[in-house]
Amino acid sequence: MFVQILINGLVLAGGYALVAVGLTLTFGVMRMVNFAEGQSVMIGAFVAYTCVPYVGYVGAIAAAMAVNAVLGIILERTAFRPFRGVELNGLIASMGMSIVLVNVAELVWGTTPRPFDTLYNDTSVTIGTVGISVQRLICVVVSGAILTGLWWLVAYTSLGRKFRAVSEDHETASAMGIDVNQVSRLALVIGSMMAASAGALAGPVNMIAPDMGRTEMLNAFAAIILGGFGNVNGTILGALLIGLIQSIAAVYISNAYSTSIAFALLVVTLIFFPRGLVPERVDENV
């Protein structure tokens, strides 16, 4: 049973991490929280669902990420750039956009939860006494690959250096010739694309509906706080811990309160590590 618990935890952690890293990237660069990230997950799931019959599953993930890249540009222009320096207004604007996205999805796809089945749902690998669908294994592997790619981008590329520069001091970065608006837009675009991949990967595991994405958002916030706000590596570690704790607690303690247990442990951890598990200096975070 432990293998199933582990894989279940990794599936959860992968989804949380993709959302959380997108959020933390945006926060690190713009110092603003994107409350529409959960709804970006939902839009990504629906776009992938719509595209699967035409371009296959891999193509559908790519299409979802492409559509969400455009969504990221729209979000940056409407809910973030006009409110730079007035964080509270930006926060409310992104909350407003999240409601708009839900309504758009209700109009386009309706309110009835829909199945998003891929070829990989029906193919299971039996480990012990319980089957695990190939779709779940894909979730783990692809999430890991995307997160590794993002880590590499932030740590070793020119764009990553720009992210870190803007994160440390956007005025100095601007004075040194970095286009802060462009870097901010790219942070939101990448965040939205991560959310799309989370939706496209997790959608086939459950049903998809316009109200999805809230749980992922809540747990992503927990992962960010646990890892250290604005810190990519810490956020991934936080997501991993939250996912695994929920999975283990659901089996060995109580499934009725697995989320509460995870959040209680979060609070206890923060008492001993107030700046998260990876307490880098804020100006080094992205």
């Binding site: 049973m1 199933q4 279940n8 599936v11 319980v130 779940r136 749980t215 999975s247 089996v251 009725a256």
Partner: peptide, 12 residues
Amino acid sequence: DRSDTNWYATIT
């Protein structure tokens, strides 16, 4: 938990 869509832990 009614908001938890992941039933897999229970099913195992």
